[in-house]
Each structure stands twice: as C-alpha cells, then as structure tokens.
C-alpha cells in the first residue's frame, strides 16, 4: 500500500504572526514547525504501512527551509519525500496550492493520500478537498478513525453529533482530525536515519506547472489590504468579594445577553 502524506510547514502556533505589508505574505522569520495536524496524518500513514507494507512518501510545498520539517516526518518513519519549492509558487492561494499539489501527485503512484485536516496558519482547510477534486478521487475529511484492508477504507467522519461511517474503495484522498491517533515520537534511529532518506526537491519547471495558475500572480483571490484587528481592551475588572456573581449577571443583563 503506497501512501502519500501531504504536509505543510507552518508558523508556530504560539508565535505572533505578521504579514509583510507589501506582499501580504506571512512573515516566516518566526519559528516554523510541521503543521501539528499533519503529524496525525503521518502517524496514520505509518500505522497503515505497518499493517500492509508499502511506502510512505511525504509531499510538501513550501520554501526550501521546509525541508527541516519534512525531515521530522521522515524521522517519524516515512520512507522518502518530495518538496515542491520554487519562488514562483510564493503567494499561491488555496486553488493555486491545490493545483500544484495535484500536478505533483499525478506524477506519483499512490493508493491513498492523507492530509491533516487543516493547517494552523492558512486555516482554510480547503486544500485537501480541492486536490481530491482535481485528481478525480473520492474524498473524506475530518476523519476520527481509519481502517483499511488494503483495497478499501472504513472510516469515521467526525460530526458535532457523533460520527458518520463510510466505506470507500482505494485510491482515495482523506484528511484526518486531531485526535485520530497519538503521533509517535521519533526515536534516535529515526532521527539519524532521516538524514539519509531521499528528499527530492522539485521546481515548477520539473512539474511542468502552468505559471498562470500559481503564485501571487495566478491567485484567483487577492489581498487588498490587511490591518491589525482593533485590539480588545480590558473592561471592568473586579475582585471577588462574594457579590461578583451578581455583578456578572448585572453586566450580562445590561448587555441584553440573558
């Protein structure tokens, strides 16, 4: 069973994020990490590999520095990696990203493609569905459980009320929710081994991408302006003296929240 895990390098969730005021692109000088949702995707792929054998390949689109975080996925146990990296890709929007990933995926062989549900910086959660559509593969998102016999998938898709169970033949594209598993912690063997695993960097030309569909220029959506949200300010602050519950209730009543 050959599995491709699509991962992204994101700005650390704890870091304050800034946009470059000229390009409206994310300032990536702050600490970067492997998108936390993608760790679940990698783990799920490794578990399936342990069951069925095959290869786990990591696919990432991002700056060359993203290789560091791709190595983390390799340290967890993935076999090899492809990094799509090209200055022309910078500024790609959801659809541009999906197009580039889909084109790369078309050149690879796979039974299953796994995404993390969303990234913690772009936060659109739309790339996986768009990629599935562009590949013409069935798509199941937000999975809280996944099993496979090698030819079909049995999954649970998380809902607010509980879950919906689906059966789906492979090949397919899925995205997994936080909590579907406990991502493994890389062992020393994994960390040392990851340094030697193949990591191929491909650029736009290598993939034969249509420049009009990618990058800032090819984006179908554009940022007109961005401003810092008006800072929330501190309102009333009181020490609890036994009457605070009443005071909260008064506040809620005054703002017609009750």
């Amino acid at each position: 069973m050959n599995i491709i895990v699509c991962v992204k390098q994101v700005v650390d969730t704890e870091a304050e994020k800034r946009l470059d005021p000229t390009s409206w692109r994310l300032d990536r000088t702050v600490p970067n990490i492997l998108n936390p949702y993608d760790e679940y995707a990698v783990e799920e792929a490794l578990k399936l590999k342990e069951q069925h054998g095959g290869q786990v390949t990591v696919l990432c689109m991002g700056p060359e520095g993203a290789a560091d975080d791709v190595r983390k996925a390799l340290a967890m146990g993935a076999d090899d990696a492809v990094l799509i990296s090209d200055a022309a890709l910078a500024g790609s929007d959801v659809m541009g990203t999906a197009y580039a990933l889909a084109e790369a995926l078309k050149t690879m062989s796979y039974d299953l493609i796994i995404f993390g549900n969303r990234s913690t910086d772009g936060e659109t959660g739309c790339v996986p569905a768009a990629v599935a559509e562009l590949l013409g593969r069935p798509f199941l998102s937000t999975l809280s459980k996944m099993e496979s016999d090698g030819t079909t998938l049995k999954v649970h898709r998380e809902t607010d009320l509980g879950y919906v169970a689906y059966d789906c033949p492979l090949p397919a594209v899925v995205s997994v929710a936080k909590g579907i598993n406990e991502p493994r912690y890389p062992t020393m063997k994994g960390i040392l081994g990851a340094k030697k695993k193949p990591l191929e960097v491909k650029d736009v030309a290598a993939l034969g991408l249509d420049i009009s569909k990618i990058g800032l220029g090819g984006a179908k959506t554009k940022v007109l302006s961005a401003r810092t949200a008006p800072p929330r300010t501190a309102g009333t602050k009181i020490e609890d003296d036994g009457s605070s519950a009443q005071k909260i209730a008064d506040f809620l009543a005054a703002e017609k929240l009750l």
Partner: peptide
Amino acid sequence: EKNGNPWGVGQQT
C-alpha cells in the same frame, strides 16, 4: 522543541 519551554508558551513571549 517548538517553543523552548515545556509549557508550550510562545518563545517570542
């Protein structure tokens, strides 16, 4: 690993 402290509070802060 990510934030330089076990509580996970942002390194920038």
